[in-house]
Design a protein around this nucleic acid. Structure first.
Lengths: 140, 140
DNA sequence: TCATCTATATGTAACTTACATATGGCTTAT
DNA sequence: ATAAGCCATATGTAAGTTACATATAGATGA
């Protein structure tokens, strides 16, 4: 939701379906990517997600843990308990070859999505540049 | 789904949650944008969506019509029947001021989403460039 | 020992999308 | 004139996904 943004206020938009910074369909590829950098476990992966770049959105533990179990079920990762170190036991995950493949497939998909978003923004900008009566915030 | 892609085949990935070209949370902003270019009606808007750049995905009429009704309910658009011209009557839609506002809010949101996707891809590329054992398709 | 943090886990409500199907006017060809 | 086919709108519901709530339990420290 984007209720808090300046624009939303300007136009008095209370209810907005915009996902803003939410990580739609993003937990799985992120987990795969993090794991491609080395084995890790749920809680830590959740924190990495937290710092990834979704503004003001903290990830749902349920999503993280369930996605990891799903990935394991489908043989994209393997897991084993790590009882070393301090604190409660962690379930440690490792990417499989198949998991690396899935990451690459996701990357392809994300590239396409990016292109579609880019196309939208380009057309949007082009249109509203010619109609200068409308406010445009942050011209990136 | 991306089952058909070369990568997916290479890694024998049958089940993949990647949304590929699907228009997740994209129908509403697209409709708003199309309407910002001039009034139109459901069927035509659907065709515009069809040609927008989602590869191999045709939009769901249900989504289009329901989204339009929702937008009207929330006063982002107005509608009236157009019985002129050939063929059955069309319900013609026009953006309101509030609707233009919503479009701008969506644009903000989409920019952010794009940035997150970009960040992912950048990190992904950086990581796998240093690990040359893995195939990278289409280096855009 | 009681609160707090780390860590994993599950149940379910809420939301979104996808698929199926219905309806009816208009046009065109037979 | 009538049947086929397209244009156009509409709704019901299944399937899929995310969000919220809550449970459990070991370790740590006051």
């Amino acid at each position: 939701m984007f209720e808090g943004s300046k624009l939303a206020k300007k136009y008095k938009i209370k209810k907005c379906e915009c996902p803003s910074g939410k990580m739609i369909r993003f937990v799985e590829p992120c987990l795969l990517f993090f794991l491609s950098q080395g084995s890790s476990y749920g809680y830590e992966l959740m924190e990495k997600l937290n710092n990834f770049g979704f503004p003001k959105v903290n990830p749902d533990p349920a999503m993280v843990y369930r996605t990891l179990r799903y990935l394991e079920k489908e043989k994209f990762v393997t897991s084993n308990w790590d009882t070393n170190g301090s604190g409660p036991a962690k379930r440690n995950y490792d990417l499989t070859e198949k998991g690396i493949g899935l990451l690459h497939v996701w990357a392809e998909s994300i590239k396409m999505r990016k292109q579609v978003l880019e196309k939208f923004i380009k057309q949007y900008k082009k249109h509203f540049k010619n109609n200068k009566n409308i406010l445009l915030e942050s011209s990136t």
